[in-house]
C-alpha cells in the first residue's frame, strides 16, 4: 500500500511524492513489550517476503549482546534457510516485475517454485509465512528426515527453471529489454549518497555485500560466495543482479548441504535467560539490502529496552522521486518495480 502522488504533463512525470505509512504496525514498539524469544516472530512481519533474513538480524543482535555461541550446525542451517528465503524473495520480485511490465505468465511460473520453498519451510518449522524459526543461540528445530535430499532435488529443478523458463521469457524478449535497458539509471555515486544497499547498490557497480564485507555467521568460510555486481545501474542491471543472486544462492545452499556438520542446533541458555546489559547493531544482507537491528538491553527486564530496525526497502525507496523526474508514466511502474520494495519493511 504505497501511494505515489504524481504530477503529470501529458505522460511525462513532473513531480513525484511517495506517501507511506499505510502499513505501519509499530513493530519497533512491539519489540519493547515482547521478550527476546517472542520478538523474533514479529520480525517476520517486517519484510514478509524474506522473513528468515529478518529473524537472523534479530537473533544475531541478541546473541551479540548476550555473547552466545551458536552451534556450527545451527549456523549452517541458518545460512541455508537465509539463502532459500532470498530465493523466494527474488522469485516474487521476478514474477511481479513481469506483471508490472505487462507479462502475466512469469508470475505464475515463479510462484510455482516459491511454493516449493515454502512447502519445505513448512516441513521445517510448521509455517509458511511467519516462520518463527530462529532462536537466540540457534534455531528451533533440527532438519527433518530426508529434508536435505528433497532440497537438493528441488535445487536441480529450480536451477533448470531459471535458465529455461524465467530468463528465456523475460530477457529473451525484445520488449522486456526495451522496457528495462537505460530505464531508472543510478550512477554509483548517487547510489552511495542515497544509502542504497543490496542488489540496488551492486547493480550500480559498487561491489559491496555485507556477507563478505561485514561478515557474519559462516559466510567467510564459504567458497561459493561471490557477490554479483553489474555496472550499468539501470533496471536491467538490477534484474541481472537478482537473477545472478538466485544462482549464487543455489551454489551457497549446495555448499552448505555438502559440509553440513552434525551436533546440536541450539545453544543451551537455561529456562530463565536474561540478556545482560549492553547494546549491539547486527546487520544481515537481506534480499533487498542491509537489514539491521540495533538493540539495547538494560539487563533487568526480559524485553529489549529498545530495538530499532533498519529496513532496506525504506532506504532504497527514497531514490524514487529522483529517478522518476522526466520519465513516462509507464516507466514509473518499471522503475518502482525494479527497486523491489516490500511495504511491510518500509512502514514496519
Amino acid at each position: 500500500m504505497l501511494r505515489v502522488v504524481l504530477r503529470l504533463s501529458g505522460e511525462k512525470v513532473v513531480e513525484c511524492v511517495p506517501v507511506m505509512g499505510y502499513l505501519h504496525r509499530g513493530l519497533e514498539k512491539i519489540f519493547e513489550w515482547r521478550t527476546y524469544h517472542q520478538g523474533i516472530r514479529y520480525t517476520d512481519q517486517s519484510d514478509y517476503i524474506s522473513n528468515m533474513l529478518n529473524e537472523h538480524a534479530y537473533a544475531g543482535a541478541t546473541e551479540a549482546i548476550g555473547g552466545i555461541d551458536v552451534p556450527r550446525r545451527a549456523e549452517y542451517i541458518r545460512v541455508m534457510v537465509d539463502e532459500m528465503s532470498r530465493c523466494a524473495s527474488h522469485l516474487v520480485w521476478l514474477g511481479t516485475y513481469g506483471l508490472d511490465i505487462g507479462a502475466t505468465t512469469p508470475f505464475f511460473w515463479c510462484l510455482r517454485d516459491r511454493e516449493e520453498i515454502l512447502d519445505m519451510f513448512e516441513e521445517l518449522c510448521g509455517s509458511r509465512m511467519n516462520f518463527n524459526y530462529y532462536r537466540p543461540g540457534g534455531v528451533l528445530y533440527d532438519l527433518p528426515e530426508g529434508w536435505l535430499g528433497k532440497l537438493e532435488r528441488f535445487l536441480d529443478r529450480y536451477e533448470a527453471h531459471i535458465g529455461e523458463d524465467y530468463r528465456r521469457i523475460l530477457e529473451g524478449n525484445e520488449i522486456f529489454l526495451e522496457r528495462t535497458i537505460g530505464v531508472g539509471t543510478i550512477p554509483a555515486d548517487l547510489a552511495k549518497r542515497y544509502g542504497l544497499t543490496g542488489p540496488m547498490l551492486r547493480a550500480s557497480g559498487v561491489d559491496f555485500d555485507l556477507r563478505r564485507d561485514r561478515p557474519y555467521s559462516i559466510y567467510p568460510e564459504l567458497k561459493s560466495l561471490r557477490p554479483v555486481v553489474e555496472s550499468a545501474g539501470d533496471a536491467y542491471a538490477r534484474y541481472k543482479v537478482r537473477v545472478g543472486e538466485m544462482y549464487l544462492a543455489i551454489n551457497i545452499i549446495r555448499e552448505c548441504i555438502a559440509n553440513m556438520p552434525g551436533g546440536s542446533v541450539r545453544a543451551r541458555l537455561g529456562h530463565v535467560w536474561k540478556c545482560p546489559k549492553g547494546e549491539a547493531y547486527y546487520t544481515v544482507e537481506s534480499s533487498k539490502g542491509e537489514v539491521g537491528i540495533y538493540m539495547i538491553s538494560d539487563g533487568r527486564s526480559p524485553n529489549p529496552y529498545r530495538a530499532k530496525m533498519r529496513g532496506a526497502s525504506f532506504h532504497n525507496l527514497q531514490i524514487l522521486p529522483c529517478l522518476l523526474r522526466g520519465r513516462l508514466v509507464a516507466d514509473v511502474i518499471a522503475i518502482l518495480g525494479s527497486i523491489d520494495i516490500v511495504l511491510g519493511e518500509i512502514d514496519r
Partner: peptide, 12 residues
C-alpha cells in the same frame, strides 16, 4: 501472444 509478451511503452 497475450500470455507471452510484456507491454510496450508509449514512445516505443
Amino acid at each position: 501472444i497475450r500470455a507471452t509478451l510484456p507491454r510496450f511503452r508509449i514512445d516505443q
